[in-house]
Amino acid sequence: MKIIISPAKKMNVDTDSLPVDGLPQFLPQTGRLLAALCSMTPRELQALWKCSDSIARLNIERLKSMDLRRGLTPAVLSYEGIQYRYMAPGVMNSRQLQYLRDHLRILSGFYGLLRPFDGVTPYRLEMQAKLEVDGAKDLYAFWGGLLAGQLAKGTSLVLNLASKEYSRAVTAYLPESMVLTCVFGESVGGKVVEKGTMCKMARGQMVRWLAENEIDSPGDITSFSDLGYKFDPKLSNNNLYVFIKGGN
């Protein structure tokens, strides 16, 4: 079983807490993306990033000195979003960290597909960014089936805990029967309503729970009950597990 999650926009540098295992698998492709970004004007970059002036200035400075091979942070410690705070890899024990190595993969517009202890540097490039590189109209076309092909090696199941923006970069190239997507929501008027912040919290908490319990079977995933969520068998099927907050 492989687990896919999204990255986070906010990133930090931590070269001391845990060592990196190596470099990302698709570094040549990342180098081409970096070259494309460096060829753009500040105004073009800010339009691409859709960000404030201060965030644009920060990331333009990052581009000027970006080194893809030195001063790197393990990917799982580099992202600072809500999902990663609830996953809390910094306080995991060695068995739990090994579980992440074996099972977790992070999707990235810039790096493609990251193992949790691949060394990365702070960047800004969302998967849905309209960056034209190598004749591709956007990053989905640039990465194509490359990420899905790598993800599918050695596994028959992909547990999808990523946002739709990121998961579509791989699920479009995988057999439907191979992907199990988890949905975290609330029952409102007979409908399942997903709330962004709560979904991020639940995804991170589930990764932590999976690692703590060394889960490797889809049937065992239904036991997840953290943060008040309960598996709802009536709303679920073989390719979709629905967890309802406050459910019975």
Score class of each variant (00 low, 15 high):
85 R>Q: 14
131 L>V: 04
134 D>N: 05
238 N>F: 10
29 Q>W: 07
207 V>H: 05
147 L>T: 10
131 L>W: 09
161 L>Y: 05
199 C>R: 15
116 P>A: 07
14 D>A: 11
40 M>G: 04
203 R>D: 07
67 D>F: 06
16 D>M: 06
56 A>P: 04
15 T>G: 02
216 D>V: 12
67 D>Y: 09
201 M>V: 11
168 R>T: 07
141 A>R: 12
216 D>P: 00
134 D>H: 00
77 L>F: 15
6 S>W: 10
115 R>V: 01
114 L>W: 10
239 N>F: 07
146 L>M: 12
94 S>A: 15
117 F>A: 02
13 V>K: 11
29 Q>I: 00
194 E>G: 02
44 E>M: 09
137 K>A: 15
175 P>C: 06
163 S>H: 05
36 A>G: 05
65 S>P: 00
62 R>W: 09
19 P>D: 10
24 P>N: 13
74 P>C: 12
195 K>V: 11
147 L>Q: 14
80 E>I: 03
134 D>F: 01
56 A>K: 06
163 S>F: 10
127 M>I: 12
140 Y>T: 00
32 R>S: 13
4 I>N: 08
234 K>H: 08
212 E>N: 02
143 W>C: 02
48 L>M: 07
230 K>P: 00
89 P>N: 03
163 S>Y: 06
106 I>N: 05
224 F>A: 01
32 R>K: 15
120 V>G: 07
189 G>W: 12
30 T>Y: 08
43 R>D: 13
121 T>L: 02
85 R>F: 06
210 L>K: 10
79 Y>N: 06
201 M>K: 15
4 I>T: 03
226 D>P: 00
244 I>G: 01
184 F>Y: 15
138 D>G: 05
78 S>I: 00
244 I>M: 04
177 S>T: 11
170 V>E: 06
108 S>V: 03
192 V>N: 14
203 R>S: 08
83 Q>P: 02
198 M>L: 13
21 D>M: 06
11 M>G: 05
4 I>A: 08
25 Q>V: 04
23 L>M: 08
44 E>F: 04
142 F>G: 01
68 L>H: 08
4 I>D: 02
137 K>M: 09
132 E>K: 13
245 K>A: 11
120 V>L: 01
194 E>A: 12
212 E>H: 09
156 S>V: 03
162 A>G: 04
121 T>E: 13
142 F>N: 00
40 M>T: 01
47 A>K: 14
200 K>I: 03
209 W>P: 11
191 K>A: 14
90 G>S: 09
227 L>D: 05
26 F>V: 04
18 L>G: 06
162 A>Q: 05
194 E>M: 14
111 Y>W: 13
96 Q>N: 12
36 A>C: 05
187 S>L: 15
85 R>L: 07
81 G>Y: 06
95 R>E: 15
41 T>D: 08
196 G>E: 03
231 F>N: 03
19 P>A: 06
70 R>A: 15
221 I>Y: 12
28 P>I: 08
202 A>H: 10
96 Q>Y: 11
145 G>Y: 10
233 P>F: 12
116 P>M: 08
119 G>R: 11
141 A>D: 11
